[in-house]
């Protein structure tokens, strides 16, 4: 469903390229939940923005359903992928139902009038996420958990094959966190959607993710870090620097077995405990 082909992501800062990751070749299938893990500043959000076509890649392509997202019109993209990037303050005076209806915008006409079918889809999306009873409540009066669910209902109403979420569990308590992740897994599996999310909550996401993408510092992932030992990546035109990060992918079980989780936070006084499925202080 999502395919990255030789994708390089990063920024152009004053004529210089800051390459966060380069030559990524990976994919996500339909009905699969992929969790993007990594330390702050490693480039998770940049990667998500690039995949969502909110930012251009430095090189390579992102294909969704075989279409290059950079070449898609905004209207086409709106039917290919939906994003959940947290709350927007401007949404407060919408009722939940009005917010979820916005998800139908890519399909409605000039004035955004909803057909009976659109209304049914909106109702179904609210029911699926469990916010039907909040339909006429204003978004500003919701708790953080309810609001995040409403945003996900809006995303579902958009009926795209791909859902991309940026830290969907931030600010949520443990019950809401787990409930939300299970909901995303159920939607992904039952509706055959490709779900890609960045998340910091390692222990919660391990049991529900089909695939993990670990964004790790480049040098340390190959071998125990020896300064200056890494191989320069020469394929990128004009690029002299090694990308700052790279991605290790696999199922949670595989990555735990190969001890890859330890590369997420090298040089930090914490380590991954496979039994608990979470990071703990190295020397308590």
């Amino acid at each position: 469903m999502i395919r990255l082909e030789n994708l390089s992501v990063g920024y152009k800062v004053g004529g210089h390229e800051r390459i966060l990751m380069s030559r990524l070749n990976m994919s996500i299938s339909t009905g699969e939940v992929t969790a993007l893990l990594g330390a702050n500043g490693r480039g998770k959000s940049t990667l998500l923005r690039t995949i969502s076509a909110l930012q251009s890649p430095l090189d390579g392509r992102v294909l969704i359903d075989g279409k290059d997202v950079a070449a898609c019109s905004t209207a086409e993209l709106a039917r290919l992928l939906t994003i959940v990037t947290g709350h927007s303050d401007g949404a407060g005076a919408f009722t939940v139902e009005e917010l979820v209806r916005l998800g139908r915008q890519p399909y409605t006409g000039f004035f955004g009038r909803l057909s009976d079918r659109d209304r049914a889809i909106v109702a179904e999306a609210m029911a699926m996420v469990g916010v039907s009873h909040l339909a006429s409540r204003h978004v500003a009066t919701l708790s953080d958990g309810e609001r995040q669910k409403a945003m996900i209902a809006k995303a579902i109403a958009q009926q795209t094959p791909v859902i991309i979420l940026d830290e969907p569990t931030a600010f949520l308590d443990v019950a809401n966190r787990l409930e939300l992740l299970m909901l995303l897994r159920d939607i992904s599996h039952s509706q055959h959607k490709a779900v890609l999310m960045s998340i910091h909550d390692v222990s919660s996401v391990m049991p529900i993710a089909d695939q993990l993408w670990l964004v790790v510092p480049t040098a340390t992932s190959h071998a125990p870090s020896t300064p200056g030992s890494h191989i320069p990546v020469g394929s990128h035109p004009g690029a002299t620097a090694t990308p700052e990060s790279e991605i290790l992918s696999g199922s949670p079980a595989e990555l735990i077995a190969s001890d890859a989780m330890q590369h997420l936070f090298p040089d930090r006084p914490i380590s991954f405990d496979p039994l608990r499925g979470d990071f703990l202080p190295s020397h308590p």
């Binding site: 039917r79 939906t82 927007s88």
Partner: peptide, 12 residues
């Protein structure tokens, strides 16, 4: 009202 990114993602 949802912000620039959401608006773009809705086809605006």
């Amino acid at each position: 009202l949802l912000g620039d990114n959401y608006a773009r993602n809705l086809g605006v």
